[in-house]
């Protein structure tokens, strides 16, 4: 019964987006992926939520700037366990073109565990969906 319930629960991964100083390319693509009819993540049971407290899968964009760092870390800590982290775009993964600037503190895996990387600048929505699908399979094992 317990395993069955967990299996059922895995079909409801709610998404939350954190912008850690991105150029908003990935954010726009995330909004597109999450909200519009063409990609409709709701059919995967996903829901885009407004509060970190409701999130299961965290999508992070941006190279982590100095000024946003504390806020991102605080926000990340607010997301209840179990959670899965997806780095969207090359910025959170390696800081991309912004690497080695005085105002950049990334990459993101220096601060908290990342599970899935979706490289691209920005990745296309289909690639993001692929990443989310992968994240769901990781999430299933964590419940």
């Amino acid at each position: 019964m317990k395993t069955f319930l967990k299996k059922v629960a895995a079909q409801s991964p709610w998404l939350y987006r954190i912008n850690a100083g991105s150029c908003n390319g990935c954010d726009v693509e995330l909004a597109t992926t999450a909200c519009i009819s063409r990609y409709d993540v709701e059919r995967l049971g996903c829901k885009y939520c407004g509060s970190p407290k409701h999130a299961d899968i965290v999508l992070i964009t941006g190279p982590m700037t100095t000024r946003v760092k504390e806020k991102v870390l605080r926000l990340y800590a607010e997301i209840p366990d179990p959670k899965v982290t997806v780095a969207v775009g090359i910025c959170p993964i390696s800081c991309g073109v912004f690497r080695d600037s005085y105002a950049i503190e990334g990459p993101i895996d220096k601060y908290f565990p990342v599970d899935i990387n979706v490289p691209g600048c920005p990745p296309r929505p289909q690639a993001i969906i692929e990443g989310i699908a992968e994240a769901i399979s990781v999430w299933r094992t964590r419940l």
Partner: peptide
């Protein structure tokens, strides 16, 4: 305006061309 208090003041005064590229610790 934009720069965080933790970053040293007058950051562009201290920049010596090429140095950040070559010493890029993160890279």
């Amino acid at each position: 305006l934009f720069i965080d208090e933790t970053i040293e003041p007058a950051v562009f005064d201290g920049l010596i061309p090429y140095s950040t590229l070559i010493n890029g610790a993160s890279s």
